[in-house]
Simulated scan of single mutants.
Amino acid sequence: MKSFKADYVYTVCADPIKNGIVTVDDNGKIISVTNDNHPQASDTPLEEVSGIIVPGFINTHCHTELSHMKDRIAAGGGLIDFIKDILSFRTADEAEVIAAAEAADREMYDNGIVAVGDISNNILTAPLKAKSKLYYHTFIEILGFLPDKADELFEKALEIAEGFKPQSTSITAHAPYSVSKELFKLIKKHSDAGTNLLSIHNQECEDENKFYRYKLGGFIDLYKHLGVDIGYFRPQARNSLQSIIPLLTNRQKILLVHNTCTNLKDIYFIKRFDRKINWCFCPNANLYIEKRLPKVDLFVNQGLNITLGTDSLASNDKLCILSEMRTLQQNFPSLSIDTLLEWGTINGAKFLGIDNEKGTIEVGKTPGLNLLTGMDGVKLTPDTRVKKLV
């Protein structure tokens, strides 16, 4: 066993403990959480650290298979050009893709991340996830806006999921603008039949809403660029999110990712439906791609379930939940460290279904322990750093 004493221990499930002491066994399992008023056993080594101890971070949205694209796509070009660049750079030597993904896995580990909700369109990352120190749930993502391709694409996704076994996986839609109604229905049928977490890119740019409301905007040009005939599609006179919510299952947890252009009407609309909605913010990626952030205050004021993600190295210069938290606090100063830690730990653990082990510092759990230094009281600063203790 080993004990760590810090200025504060933020368990996330209770009030912060001043001069807190956390004791773990050799497997990282929490043996006790106390303070210096309760002396430790003399035979347990005690390491005193300056800063605050928090649980390991949960990254609910990443694309490790895109890690080889780091620094290849110019920032600030908008989502449409970003998609074009992704399609241009995606094809690469398998060894390069795997090596970059392995480096990304190590980076996340070093940055105190203990679990990842990762998007995959192929089988390449399965071996690294099988041996990783991180917990992975892989979302097998389907893209296909042509109705006659729905069955073929869904069967291919099932094959990819089979290749990841026995790892935790589910089959999900990419985004409203890239998945046909027929494909959404197949995913819903699959989700209604068993456990199948969903993670869907949502409203990353205004053009997505324009496309659904009026069949106008950049996505029309994108499909022309791709040589895809979407003549069958009819405008829905509603935003994209409002259009697809009725197509989603009410039996599974759903993560809506990015939400850069989600508005209050969208939120009110969703509340009329019996859906298990969670919302993921990836602020650094939003700034990288669209140079804007979601209306975070709307989500906070509505008391919604919020998690954090990093997105990929194609749209971010690092895979670090602390960095995402720092960006949010800089742009929304009213956000407290308590709130940010909930988003970056227990909320993600609950969504992924691993909150019995991760997300809070409690006896019997193996959440991982991170040390945050360079704080200004209880505020994050540009100098705040994370060090993995366990």
Rank of each mutant, 00 (worst) to 15 (best):
I289D: 00
S132E: 08
H38G: 00
G117N: 03
V296P: 04
S170W: 04
P166C: 07
T310H: 11
T249R: 04
A285H: 12
F269K: 10
G77L: 05
N356L: 10
R275K: 13
K291C: 05
D15V: 14
E152I: 06
F219R: 00
G303W: 05
Q329C: 04
F219C: 02
G231Q: 05
S191Y: 00
V300G: 02
K133D: 08
S120P: 08
T23C: 14
Y288G: 03
A314Y: 01
A175S: 03
L319G: 12
A75E: 15
P166T: 09
C13M: 04
K189D: 11
T307I: 04
P45A: 12
T381A: 06
I200C: 13
A104H: 13
L66P: 01
D85K: 14
N301K: 13
I306W: 07
E206H: 07
K84S: 05
T11L: 02
G217Y: 04
S240I: 01
I254V: 06
L389P: 01
Y136E: 11
T345F: 08
E107S: 13
L389I: 13
S132P: 07
K188M: 12
G227E: 04
D148R: 07
V12Y: 02
K291H: 12
S312C: 06
K365C: 10
E48P: 01
E65M: 07
Q40R: 07
A175I: 03
K387F: 10
K365P: 01
K70H: 14
I83A: 03
L79H: 02
V24P: 01
V390L: 06
V300N: 05
G51P: 02
P147M: 01
T384I: 06
E357T: 11
V114N: 02
E94W: 12
N305G: 14
Q40E: 03
L369K: 02
